[in-house]
């Protein structure tokens, strides 16, 4: 890669980042208004009990600032975000930033592992299907993908638990990131697999990995379909292209053609889809987190939403939007490196 091309990518990335700022502001304002419009009064919810008097509720309301006009509330909220203060969760009593920081690694670790699992399954399956379109393999892959996308994650999760934990007994308790007998490695990144590795604690590493397998498999199964299908479609297009014919005409070996020429080109659209899939998984894995009692951000946000706890929900949405922007930027940069034509624009 030439330095000129890298410079172009860097400039493009900067531009893209700046252009996503308005979207982030929009997300902040939209969630803020949405939370105010949804039914449910946090003051009533957090008052001492169903019998709390009008005065007590009013006092809580004014203490929370809910009696002020909405525009003023928004102003304070935006000012607080600017100073890095996302507010305090009324359910946990902690600041939202602290809650999210402690829970985000759990969600990220699960999502990364699930995505890696999905990609290692989906790409070979898609390639196999594309090499023999209309064959048994192709139909088999299609069936698997359809099943994966049809079965909701809470059903497939429970099925996996039934199979591997209850029936075969080879999976650990489907509760949380570590079983009760393992001590957590000293926290560095929050990713248990990495922290355990850093501490040289193989027992903790394998325990954490074992806990990860079932929820990650559940999520991977769900996103297998888009990844495998796009791999198949893009491989089919690439295999029919002129330069593959050239490579065949020059007598290049079959693996060289399929992996070196076709797959490298065919993976470009898969990269884009993988970015979207990653963002979707991170936001939508609440069902998996609930089924496996996974202490992630999605479950946290759902609990807060159910108890009309504004700050965590708003913080969660802002976090998701930011991650979405970062993921897209990363994909952009990767795309720029993988496809030399992009730098030309």
């Amino acid at each position: 890669m030439k330095p000129r091309a890298l410079g172009l990518i860097a400039r493009r990335t900067g531009r893209r980042f700046l252009s996503s700022v308005p979207a982030l502001v929009g997300v902040v304002v939209f969630t803020f208004i949405l939370m105010r419009v949804l039914p449910g009064d946090p003051a009533v919810f957090f008052a001492s009990g169903p019998n709390a008097g009008k005065a007590e509720i009013e006092a809580i309301r004014s203490q929370m600032g809910l009696d002020k006009p909405m525009a003023e509330q928004l102003f304070y909220y935006v000012r607080d975000i600017g100073t890095g203060n996302l507010g305090r969760s009324l359910t946990t009593g902690q600041t939202v930033s602290k809650d999210l920081a402690s829970r985000l690694p759990a969600s990220l670790e699960l999502t990364f592992v699930a995505l890696a699992l999905a990609l290692t399954l989906a790409i070979p399956l898609g390639v196999l299907a594309a090499l023999r379109p209309g064959s048994l393999v192709d139909h088999g892959v299609r069936l698997l993908c359809t099943l994966g996308v049809c079965v909701p994650t809470f059903v497939s999760g429970l099925l996996l638990i039934y199979c591997f934990y209850y029936w075969l007994g080879i999976a650990p308790d489907p509760t949380g990131r570590l079983d009760v007998f393992t001590t957590e490695p000293p926290r560095i990144t929050g990713f248990l697999l990495i922290d355990a590795l850093a501490a040289g604690d193989w027992e903790a590493w394998s325990a954490a990995a074992r806990q990860l397998v079932l929820p990650a498999a559940t999520m991977a199964l769900f996103v297998l379909a888009p990844l495998a299908r796009i791999t198949r479609a893009s491989m089919l297009a690439v295999l029919g292209s002129d330069y593959i014919r050239t490579a065949e005409g020059l007598g290049l070996s079959r693996p060289r053609i399929i992996i070196g020429y076709a797959l490298r080109n065919g993976l470009l659209p898969v990269l884009t889809i993988a970015g979207i899939v990653f963002s979707t998984m991170l936001g939508a894995n609440v069902l998996v987190e609930k089924v496996f009692s996974w202490p992630g951000v999605a479950a946290y946000a759902l609990d807060a939403l159910l108890s009309s706890d504004y700050a965590p929900v708003q913080g969660f949405v802002l976090l998701m939007a930011t991650i979405f922007v970062i993921v897209n930027l990363t994909i952009d940069v990767l795309y720029g490196i993988a496809d030399p034509r992009i730098g030309m624009e």
Partner: peptide
């Protein structure tokens, strides 16, 4: 490639773009 080989129409598409 070794004994017989071919040059194609539309040379740009005939080369691997990446």
């Amino acid at each position: 490639g070794a004994a017989m080989t071919m040059v194609f129409q539309n040379p740009r598409a005939a080369l691997n773009p990446i």
